[in-house]
Structure formats: structure tokens, C-alpha cells
Design a protein around this nucleic acid. Structure first.
Lengths: 216, 216, 216, 216
DNA sequence: AATGAATGAGGCTTCATTCAT
DNA sequence: TATGAATGAAGCCTCATTCAT
């Protein structure tokens, strides 16, 4: 796998009008990968569950790995990057004088909802992200160059307003991502919850904003 | 796999006097599992790396899965549970009038050091914990019954003293575990760092204690 | 193995349209099993003799045991049960006033011919019947409920006519089956004859009818 | 395996004074071979059941096959050949004017008792006799040259006296052996009976003597 | 566009056997 | 004598993939 594959899949997605059978393959693959992991799911199983011949899968995707990436990459794109930008714009434009806490609440609820809606793909993404060096090498730089800077800018602007602690922005960004990543992964992947309640999201926001200490 | 297997492995660990070759098997398996994951590592590879016959591995462990568990479970026991208790005692006895922040710093440094020392096993543990339902079903209850209560007690006592925010203890505990889990997993597994610097641990403590908000 | 497997194999036989290669597998398997026994024949050997990949065998049969049963069970069905009924009808209808000796001669010749035609499968059946508890547990009840009663009825009717010794029918039936079983097994399996001459069949009939004593 | 092996085992048996552990090996092997067959029993299983190391078994027997033969051949010797001669002498000397029916009854009861006493070895013998060409090639000629002639002589002498049907002696001998073989094998091996009742033996003698016909 | 048939490569596991102690 | 440790060879089975139809 290389950069090309990644780009190629991204662009080949555009024109994709899936037939009924192809749709069934996608669903079967996602659900099996989510349940048992990529390595422990055979193409035979996928074909059987999708009620399609194995040959058809290979006709369409070429390799098992391309099947995985075709499922996961478009999702990752929506979850992480450019789209996140739109979200930020959207949220902020709705209220020019929003506090960071308000922004964070809106942002987190939005992402939680998105992950919950596509819970199985999210699980596949996290599991295989950890497991497959390949995927990590694709997604991490992408994340670093597309997502981190956007959030950094937002945080920096709130720091400038004096709302957020005056330490290196990167430190704050890292802590926030660490927590949010842990939050989503633990709930959706480890505990396999199908949703996260609003009050838990709010507790998370409180935690991010104020920690656990009582002193203020 | 069942409770029995878990207990059995734990107890069979006692008498283990490994020969040189057996030692090599352990090392090879850990390093390969850490690098490529359990499912993507064949017993043939392990045997080759350990310069041992495959048959020897199976003589000792019976199945590939028991090999994995024999590596991971004793480590998990040390990382998580009863031992954590000792650590808490040790830390607290060193300074009766310690603040929670001091306690947390000591605790986190201790666990970070332990994870760093056994980085590869830690990686295997996290990866397979996410991947294998089995292992999760063994370890999660164990964690819930052995570790959580101990930390809860500590946190509750500091809440009583007024040092920590006066909200439900479980909420605090969950947030702290979520963050610490995300912290260790992201650094050691996702980013594959070999260590975590003291000042990042301190930044993490700050984050846990006070969040990112400047308001006080 | 269980009742289900037995039934399943029986019914899956219906639709079987074997390809040329699959046909070769059947032939190779029968001949090797007959020659060296099931346990001492490896799937690799079968594949090689059939000039087919091992994978193909497993694609079709799933396990080595199912291969064995797929060969042996349909044959057993034809050799033993319902079909035996037709044979009895056929023989008897050819001559309403047939003596038991005539009937027995016809019956034995018929079964000897059938066993000789499928000598190898017959060998496999006998060998594995003795060897594999499983198969015995499938076939013995089948035999007891399907074959024995039919022959019993015939014998009983001849007893009623006064042609056969007036002792418990079951005793006669047991002795006859014991002898016929020993006769076929010794010739085709132990001595590995490819046929049994007519005069030996007739000698066998004489033995069954009159024993060895000269007194009458 | 060759003639030498056979002779060698026979003679090496003489001096055999088995230690306790060696005795346990013999018992374990017989019982496992009887239950599951030679091919499906591993040396590891035998060692475990005998509470002995595998190495010890190989020290003593060299190969797994020699272990089998060491169990089976001495038994076969006693069951079949020379000893049968003594039995014949013994039986006949007890009553000079014995009828053949009396002789046969005594002979059959004697052999049935012997097989029943050593049921497991008998099972192993029959199973492996059918399964292993080797063993058959050893025992069949032995049987043909040592046992058949002795019985033939007895039968011929009774024919001369007019007690038995006046047909070729070999025909009678074959039929008698076929039946007795089938009788013992079906009861002890197929049906796995632990004994045969006297009245069934008597029914068998009746069958051999007079068949099933009522005409006399 | 779809598939039934086929397979090379490799996976995990078991086996009989050896040998140093 | 007895055995713990080790293994080469082989066993059954699964996998992703190809190709003719």
C-alpha cells in the first residue's frame, strides 16, 4: 500500500453508484470487520453473508485490503479532516460570541453523533488503525496536517481572548485530542456502547475545561 | 477460552523455570506480536526468530492462543490490579499529608515507567485487548472489581477533604481512567514512543487537575 | 459426528453432479482408503493420486471425515437396507414356490456380486466400521431396524412352512448373519479376493442349510 | 517389518521380566489400542496414561510398531497355533470316544473363554490384523501352516468315522473357520461384548453341525 | 456483471523419535 | 534406568486469489 492507493481510493469513490449486491458486500464486510477484525474475517465469510460469490468481491475490489480501505478511508475523511473544518465554521457562525465551552460542547456532540451513526465503521477504523502500520502511516500525517492545525487555530484564538490557560497551544491541543480520542475509543470500541448520553458528553466537557480539582 | 484458562495460566506461571530456548520463544513472541499483532504473526515466524522448532513452542504452550495469554495475563495482573494497591499504599505512606496532585503525579509516573519498561507487552496487551473479545471479557471484570474500587476510595477521600470537585465519584473516576488510558495508549501504542518525558506527565497531571480553562 | 451428519450426507448426495476432478478424488480416496485404511491415508496422498490440489478436496468435503462418510454411507445404504427389501421381493416374486435354499442361494449370490463390483468401497466400509466407533453407532441401529426385521420375516415364514428348524427366529437370524458377515469379510477384506466363485457360494449355502454333520 | 522382527519379538519375550512401570505401559497401550486403534493412539497418550515418560517407552520398544507387535504377537501365538494343538490333545485325551460335536463344543468354549479373558488384546489383534498388511502377512502364513493342518487332521478323522459330511476336508475347514472367525469377531469386536454366554456357544455348535434346515 | 471451480501458499497442530543428563 | 527437552516431518485445514464460462 502506498500514497497512491490512498488517493486512488479517495477519488474512485466519487463515481461509485453501488448495485444492490455491491451494497450487500459493503454491509457484510463492515459488520464482520467490526465484529471480528479484519485479519480474522475471511473473504469467504463476507461473500457468504452478502450472498454473493467470492469472485464478485475480487472483481470489484481486487484485494481484500482494498476492500477494507474502501470502507474505511472515505469514512475517515469525513470523520477527521476537511469536513471538520466545515463543522467548525458552522458551529462558530451560529454564534459569534460563543464561549469555548459552548464551542467544545457543540463540537463533541457533533462528533459523538457522527461516530454513533457509523459505529461499525468507526470500530473498524480504530481497530485497524492500531493494528495496521499501513493505515496508520496514511492517516496520521493526514490528521497532523489537516485536522490539528484547524483546531489549533481555534484554541489559539480563545487563548488570545484569555478564556483558555496561557500555555503552549500544542500542549493544550495534545491533551484535548488525547482525551477525546480516549473518550470515543473507550466508549464505542472497548465498551462497545451504541451511543453516548448527553450528560456524559457534558461531564467530559467539564473535565476538559476544569479538570477534577475544586480549587478556583 | 474461559475463566479457567485465565486462572490456570496465572497459577501455572508460578513454577515456570524457563530454559534458554523457552526464554527466546517468549522474547520473540512478544516482539513479533507487538510489531505485527497476534493474528498477523505466524507460529513459524516466532519459531524462526527464536531459533527453535515450532514443535517446541507447542510442546510448551499447546496452542498459539495460550502462548499469547501466557505473555499478556501475568503482565496485566501486575499492571492493573492488586499491585496497584501496593503502589497506592506505598505512595501515600511516603507522605501522609500529600495532596491529590502529588499523589496523582507519583502514581502516573510509576505507571508510565512500568509501561515503558515493558513497552512491547503493553502494546500487545492493548492491541489484543481491543481485538479479542475473549481477552476483554477476562480483563474488564477484573479491572472493574479490583482496580476501580481502589482508586475510587482514594478519590472519594480527597473529595471529602474538599480537594476535589464535589460531583459523583464515579464520574471523576471514569474521566480520569478515560484520560489515563488514552494517554498511555496513544503514546505507547499509536505513536509507538519508547518513553514519555516527565514534563509531559506533568502536563497531563495539570490537565487532569485543572483542565484547560483559565478561569479560577 | 451425529445423526445429522449421517442424514445430511445422505441428502446432499442427491444433487451431486461431480466434475471430472471431483470424480478423480472419489476414486483416489476409495482406492487409498481400501488399501491403507483411512487413518493411514493422508489428504495429501489422495490429492496427489487424484492430480488435484488438497484445497479442492476440502472445498468439496470440508473435512477428511466427511470425505470418508460421503463415500461409504451411500454405499452402505445400498448394500444393507431398504434396497435389500427390493431384492427380497424380486427374488421371491421370481418364484412363488421357491424353497429357502433357493432363496438363500439367490440372495447370497446377489450380495456377493454387489460386494465384488464395489470391492474397494466394501473394504473401506468393513475396515472403518470396525475401527470407528462413530460409524458403527450410525450403521448398527440402522442395520438392526431396517435389515434384520426384513430377513426375520422371511425366515419366520419358512419356519412356519416347516422348512427351517423350529427354534427362536432370532437365533437363526443371528447365526445366518454371523456367517454371511464372516464369509464376505474374510473373502473380500482379509484375503482380499476380487471375487467369490459360484461353487464356494454354494458350499456356503450348504453349510448354512445343513452344517457339517452327516447325520440326517 | 520382516520375518526377523516377528521371530525376534517372539524370542525376546522369553526373558521378559517386566518392571512395574513397564507393566503399566503394556496395560495402557493395550487399552488405548483396543479403544481407539493403533493409528489413532499417540505414544504421548500411552505415556501419559501409564504415567511414564515417552522416552522410556522408546527405550524399551524402539518404535511404536514394535510396541504393538510385542503386545499382539505373543497373544496371537497363544490364541492360534501351537497351543491350539495342546488344547486339541487335552480335549481329546479327556474322552477317547468323544463325538465331533462334543469336541467342537469343548474347543469353542475354550477359545471363547480365552478371547474373553484377553478381550482387549483380542480386539487389537483383529483390528490391526485387518488394518495392517504387515501383520496380516506375518500371521496368515503362520495360521495356514500351524493351525489349519491340525484342525484338518481332526476333521478328516471324524469324516473317516462317518460323523461328518463326506466332502473335501478343506471345504469343511474353511466353512468352520469362517464361521468361528465371524462369531468371535462380531461378538467381541463389533458388538464389543465382554463375554459370550454358554447357550450362544451351544447354538453356534448346533449351527455348525446341522445348519438351519429342519430336514433330516 | 457474476460465478463455480480450482489452487499455491501458508497456518496451526500432532506425531514418533532422539539425546543429554 | 528414566526422563525433560527438543525436533523434522507430516497432518489437516483455511486463505486470498485466479480464471473460464
Amino acid at each position: 500500500m502506498n500514497q497512491n492507493l490512498f488517493q486512488e481510493i479517495l477519488s474512485s469513490q466519487q463515481k461509485a453508484k453501488l448495485t444492490v449486491k455491491q451494497e450487500r458486500v459493503v454491509e457484510a464486510a463492515i459488520s464482520l470487520f467490526a465484529e471480528k477484525g479484519y485479519s480474522n474475517t475471511s473473504t469467504a465469510e463476507i461473500a457468504k453473508k452478502a450472498e454473493v460469490s467470492e469472485a464478485s468481491i475480487f472483481k470489484q475490489y481486487g484485494t481484500k485490503e482494498r476492500l477494507l480501505l474502501s470502507l474505511v478511508i472515505p469514512y475517515a475523511k469525513d470523520f477527521l479532516p476537511a469536513k471538520a473544518d466545515e463543522i467548525i465554521q458552522e458551529i462558530r457562525s451560529s454564534n459569534q460570541h460563543m464561549t469555548f465551552e459552548q464551542f467544545l460542547t457543540a463540537f463533541l456532540k457533533n462528533r459523538v453523533a457522527f461516530a454513533a451513526e457509523n459505529r461499525e465503521v468507526f470500530q473498524v477504523l480504530i481497530k485497524e488503525f492500531i493494528y495496521k502500520e499501513d493505515l496508520k502511516n496514511e492517516l496520521l500525517p493526514y490528521f497532523a496536517s489537516e485536522v490539528v492545525p484547524r483546531l489549533s487555530k481555534v484554541i489559539a484564538s480563545y487563548q488570545a481572548r484569555g478564556e483558555l490557560r496561557d500555555v503552549e497551544t500544542t500542549v493544550l491541543v495534545r491533551m484535548v485530542f488525547t482525551f477525546i480520542g480516549g473518550f470515543l475509543a473507550s466508549r464505542f470500541v472497548v465498551l462497545q456502547q451504541s451511543r453516548i448520553e448527553d450528560d456524559e458528553v457534558e461531564a467530559a466537557v467539564q473535565f476538559i475545561m476544569n479538570g477534577i480539582s475544586s480549587q478556583h
